[in-house]
Amino acid sequence: MSIVTRAIATADREARYLSHGELNAIGDFFETGEHRLQIALVLSKNESNIIQKASQRFWERCPVTPSNSGNPVFRASCLRDQTWYLRLVAYAVLVDDVEPIEKIGVKGAKEMYDSLGVPLKNVAECMRCIKEVALDLLCFDDKVTATPYFDYLIQGLTP
């Protein structure tokens, strides 16, 4: 949920217009909007590149993991999940809120990976690799903006 929707929901519960302070905060959000849009673009344009490098790094750090066992299905699933998580981070950056990561990617993830027999700590390590590779593509300001969302994701998947 973006700050816009959240402020509207609060005001609506109290049957009032948005306050000056709320509108100022929304104004700041609009102002940084294009900056966040640029970050999301970098992540989306470089998706395959990021995932490729992150996977290599991940398999070096965690050689014993289903996706590195030679099973092509496991490998493909691992790559696919990585693209999903990178996409969720891009959404979160765009909307300036962790909700997309939380709602789509973190809730139930532990149970899901447990039942699939994928060690969750490896998933978290894989996300850390994505974070490192992706942040390398961003300038300092963009790094500062994007880092919390990657951290939220890693934390949410840490057993």
Binding site: V4, I8, E47, A90, V95
Partner: peptide, 20 residues
């Protein structure tokens, strides 16, 4: 309830895509 941003994200997510 949604806004221009969340509306786009919701519809992109269903298709598993970045924003076009």
């Amino acid at each position: 309830m949604q806004d221009a941003i969340t509306a786009l994200i919701n519809s992109s997510d269903v298709q598993g895509r970045y924003l076009d």
